[in-house]
Simulated assay, not measured.
Amino acid sequence: MKIQLTYLFLAFISSLTLAFGQENTEVFNSANNAYNEGKYQEAITQYKSILDTGEYSAELYYNLANAYYKTNVIGPSIYYFEKALQLSPNDKDILNNLAFARNMTIDAIEPLPKTQLSKFSSNITGTFTYNQWAWIAVILAFICVISFLLYQFSYQSLQKRIYFLISFIVFIFMLGIIAITYQQYEKAQQDRPAIVFAAETTVKAEPNLRSDAVFTLHEGTKVQVLDTVADWKKIRLIDGKIGWIIAEDINEL
């Protein structure tokens, strides 16, 4: 069962069977009933008890996020919407409710401007995941090999020229796809998003309490984790600002 926002409020709408064990399914249904009765904290406790067993799904994260939203606890709400989005990236309900939750955050951070060339490149490379790009490269390699073999075994000069041209063009495209695949893979490996859970936290210039404060963040803001030193995380905002935050003030996705 999935609970979603309607008219700026969250409401129960549908019933879905989760791939849980019988016991967890009963807990999930009980949590949904608690949510519908306005017992949001009880629903949160029951949803999280399912997570404690190692079971999870986009629907579970989604409903848990909605319950947190109803209690005006924005950090965990955004966190679990983001978790749901990782499992179901094209779900419109998740995207819409995440947008509602983000509107509740205090920090208004504008992303760094991109050039037209950068936007065009991002649109192209972001069309597929690195796994999908890798499969495209494999298919192109297969076509390239077939074309080259046809070139080798063709007797007519026109056919040989055509097959050689095809194999050459496909080979060039294949190299480009391999480059994109590697770029997307590196990007995925470096992607360590996290959500601020503290109501307010000070970001420092260095990983210690004595260093200068560089800026302040509030609950629900999304950051990128760059490094870890003891109990500190080095983070970057979408506007390019970098600093160190106490590790317990954020939860990594």
Rank of each mutant, 00 (worst) to 15 (best):
M1Q: 09
K2T: 10
Q4A: 07
Q4F: 08
T6H: 11
Y7P: 02
L10V: 05
I13R: 09
I13T: 12
S15G: 02
S15N: 10
S15P: 01
G21P: 00
T25H: 10
S30I: 05
N33K: 12
Y35K: 00
G38C: 05
K39V: 04
Y40N: 05
Y40K: 09
I44D: 00
K48D: 06
S49N: 08
I50G: 02
I50F: 06
D52S: 15
T53G: 09
Y56Q: 13
E59L: 00
Y62R: 03
Y62G: 02
L64R: 02
A67I: 06
Y68F: 15
Y68S: 04
Y69G: 00
N72T: 10
I74S: 05
G75I: 04
G75E: 05
P76G: 09
P76Q: 10
S77D: 03
Y79E: 03
Y80L: 06
Y80S: 01
E82H: 09
K83V: 00
L85M: 05
Q86N: 08
N90P: 01
N90A: 11
N90E: 14
D91V: 02
D93E: 12
L95T: 06
N97D: 15
L98G: 08
F100R: 02
F100Y: 13
I106Y: 14
L112C: 07
Q116A: 15
L117G: 12
F120W: 14
S121P: 02
S122Q: 15
S122A: 15
G126P: 07
T127D: 05
Q132V: 14
W133N: 09
A134Q: 10
A134S: 15
W135I: 11
I136R: 12
A137V: 10
V138G: 09
I139L: 15
I139Q: 09
L140R: 04
V145A: 13
L150I: 00
L150K: 03
S154H: 08
K160I: 03
K160S: 00
L165K: 01
L165N: 03
I166H: 07
F168T: 13
V170C: 04
F171L: 14
F173A: 12
F173P: 03
L175N: 12
I177P: 06
I177H: 08
I178W: 08
I178H: 09
T181H: 05
Y182N: 03
Y182M: 03
Y182L: 12
E186H: 07
E186G: 00
Q189E: 06
Q190H: 11
Q190F: 07
D191M: 05
R192K: 12
A194K: 10
A194E: 05
I195F: 06
I195W: 09
V196T: 04
V196C: 01
A199L: 13
E200D: 05
V203T: 08
V203S: 08
E206G: 01
L209F: 12
T216Q: 14
V223W: 09
V223N: 11
Q224T: 06
L226A: 04
D227I: 04
T228E: 14
V229K: 13
A230Q: 14
D231R: 11
D231V: 10
K233H: 13
K233V: 05
K234T: 00
L237C: 06
I238V: 14
I238S: 14
G240L: 08
G240F: 10
I242W: 04
A247T: 07
I250L: 07
I250V: 15
